[in-house]
Design a protein around this nucleic acid. Structure first.
Length: 274
DNA sequence: GTGACCACCTGGCCGC
DNA sequence: TGCGGCCAGGTGGTCA
């Protein structure tokens, strides 16, 4: 599933391929994914517009036009592909952007969880889904005091707090498991019971894990692949996630899988004691 | 304000 | 083989 590193990979791939292209037409086959506009409003907004740049914040992809932005969240299985206009539509292609040069950008999403929001560029950080997000772990604002202040109000499991995008944005189920393993924190530990060292480790390893994953193009597991067949290599570096019943690389103990607030969670009961 | 739960959605897997 | 049920998961909405 696309988390921050995967979205960064998609952004970089698309940026090189579609920046400067003009949208001639748009076909929408699943309009429910557009959250703040009708199908016709969506078409009118972007037809005739040129993609000036592509950006990313957290897990959101941002297509920038002159004064308008299209904010795309890939959720579980959203992907983009660039194809020639004459190729037939595949089953899960829900939106097709036709460019004036004869190519198309196709949004493919098996589970139809992905979303689109339209907003003015000046409002991206004040009045859009992005405005509700916390900081990305590598931003300078993420300090011990910032995270401690956020977590001390929370009695829920730290796993759930780290998945809360209003505290830190960009971490998803895979990377939270990795960060907690490296930090030697049990995923069910109450957020407000963490030590100073725990919080410092979460910041340190969030940065470390995300930076490494970005360098490797993200993680390609289950049904998720990046756009244009670009696949990440971080799945080969996973220390804990998806390793149920395998031996912990640190202590050899068999890795457990539990549910934390409904999320599948991998941990080592020896390295990550409560 | 906080936390728990549910809906969204479909393919894959498992047991019968 | 075919069917039904469960699971996966990010986010937003609802309710206590």
């Amino acid at each position: 599933m696309p988390e921050l590193p995967e979205v960064e990979t998609v952004k970089n791939t698309l940026k090189n391929l579609i920046t400067g292209k003009e949208i001639r037409d748009i076909d929408i086959f699943y309009s429910k994914m557009i959250r703040n506009a009708t199908e016709s409003e969506f078409k009118i907004t972007f037809m005739g517009k040129t993609i000036k740049d592509i950006d990313r914040y957290g897990k959101y992809l941002i297509f920038l036009f002159d004064d308008i932005a299209l904010i795309s969240h890939l959720r579980m299985e959203g992907k983009y592909f660039i194809k020639d206009i004459d190729l037939p539509r595949e089953k899960h292609e829900h939106v097709i952007f036709y460019f004036t040069d004869g190519t198309t950008l196709r949004y493919n999403d098996t589970r139809k969880f992905g979303t689109y929001d339209i907003c003015e560029i000046k409002d991206i950080y004040t009045n859009s889904p992005i405005s509700k997000l916390g900081y990305e772990p590598f931003e300078k604002e993420v300090t011990f005091n910032y995270l401690q202040n956020k977590l001390q109000k929370k009695s829920i499991a730290i796993k759930s707090s780290l998945l809360d995008q209003t505290i830190l944005t960009g971490l998803g189920n895979i990377y939270v498991d990795e960060v907690l393993f490296l930090s030697k924190i049990h995923p069910e530990t109450q957020s407000n019971k963490l030590t100073k060292r725990n919080i410092q480790d979460i910041i340190k390893y969030s940065r470390e894990v995300l930076n490494k994953a970005i360098k490797l193009g993200g993680t390609t597991i289950r049904s998720y692949t990046s756009s244009l067949g670009v696949t990440g290599r971080f799945q080969n570096e996973l220390l804990i996630h998806m390793r149920k019943d395998e031996a912990c690389y640190t202590c050899g103990t068999t890795i457990d899988k539990i549910k934390v607030n409904g999320r599948g969670t991998y941990y080592c009961k020896e390295c990550q004691k409560k």
